[in-house]
């Protein structure tokens, strides 16, 4: 496998140190940064399917919502103390969500192209509609998550580090996966699934595992965000196709599909833009979001990293000839 260049390790270390110091350096923006980490998980898990595997899901928010509800239900009904219940809730959320994705995967991942996209879109919305009518989950009025047993500042700090942990684990898991046989296999599926099948690749297995990994991390994030917001609305928080659901796609494309850093970059840029400008749009944010999607998709579909890659291909290890270069590249 190609060894990661030195600057990548520097970048990771730099971001890691900054992430650990932010609560003390920028204490007033701690919630914004918590959401930044959440956005990074959104973009990364979407890109796992959309960018790396070529399966453009419009309904990954399904797993986020399942996670949010599962965690909240365990917290409500388990009768344990706050932190034990939260830990158990997150565990159940991740397990349930992964199980659902594995079950659905067998059927849904057999679809190609727009059938997959629209089917997942339907799944996400259907889940929101069902949750909105289900009394056990509070129906249309949603669920309130338990009160944090401590001060506001402590609560913010706790959830900052919780989401940072989820994001960090997710990032390194995906990074490791992309470097292994798994990463190359899902790239092959993206480039030509018929060929991959003709070569004997276990395509269904790879696709399902990819979806399960995405579902796992989305569910953890869902559990955390439900508690962070303190309230779970079926259509506007848990299964919010018009916000989180679309943002994931937009962030991944903006940063550059099919790379590990693209979604991270896209999430940062999008989140920053959103925090800076969104509040000045007074209710027109979502109109702007629609326009932004059209603009990016039509004029900038390759994303920031994709554009960089087109400009300097050799930086990404594409080169012709010479044994010397080759020897270094292929360890």
């Amino acid at each position: 496998m190609k060894r990661a260049p030195v600057y990548e390790y520097l970048l990771i270390t730099g971001i890691g140190v900054a992430a650990l110091l932010i609560p003390w350096l920028l204490p007033n923006f701690i919630t914004q940064f918590t959401f930044l980490w959440v956005m990074v998980v959104f973009a990364l898990t979407w890109d796992l399917l959309g960018g790396q595997m070529g399966y453009n899901s419009f309904g990954n928010v399904l797993f986020f919502g399942i996670g949010a509800y599962a965690c909240a239900v365990v917290q409500r009904d388990s009768g344990l103390d706050y932190f034990t219940a939260l830990a158990l809730g997150l565990l159940c959320a991740a397990l349930l969500s992964t199980a659902v994705s594995a079950l659905l995967g067998a059927g849904v991942l057999g679809m190609r192209g727009h059938y997959f996209a629209i089917c997942t879109l339907g799944l996400g919305v259907a889940a929101g509609e069902i949750a909105g009518g289900w009394e056990y989950l509070g129906a249309g009025s949603g669920m309130v998550t338990p009160q944090y047993p401590g001060g506001i500042g402590e609560r913010d700090l706790f959830y900052y580090f919780l989401s940072l942990t989820i994001t960090g684990t997710g990032f390194f898991t995906l990074r490791r996966l992309y470097q292994s046989r798994f990463g190359i296999a899902i790239n092959a599926i993206r480039d030509d699934e018929d060929k991959a099948e003709a070569m004997g690749l276990h395509t269904t297995r790879y696709k399902t595992v990819a979806w399960c990994v995405a579902a796992f991390f989305l569910a953890l994030t869902g559990g955390a965000v439900g508690n962070l917001i303190g309230f779970i609305d079926p259509r506007d928080v848990a299964f919010s196709g018009a916000t989180f659901g679309v943002w994931m796609i937009l962030m991944a494309i903006l940063g550059g599909k099919g790379t590990i850093w693209g979604p991270v970059l896209g999430a940062a840029v999008f989140h920053l833009t959103q925090e800076l400008f969104w509040n000045f749009l007074f209710g027109w944010q979502r109109v702007a979001l629609g326009a932004l999607i059209v603009l990016i998709v039509v004029f900038f579909p390759q994303g920031i990293l994709g554009w960089v890659r087109e400009a300097w291909p050799e930086r990404f290890g594409q080169c012709v000839d010479t044994d010397r270069q080759g020897g270094e590249e292929t360890r």
Binding site: N56, F58, G113, H114, A117, I118, A242, V246, I249, I253, W284, R286, V287, L289, G290, A291, L292, I293, V294, V297, V298, P301
Partner: peptide
């Protein structure tokens, strides 16, 4: 262009008109 682009672009138009 490829299907995903038209799908997502019309999805964006959909959100735009809706909002």
């Amino acid at each position: 262009r490829d299907l995903f682009i038209s799908l997502l672009a019309t999805f964006g138009i959909s959100i735009l008109l809706q909002q």
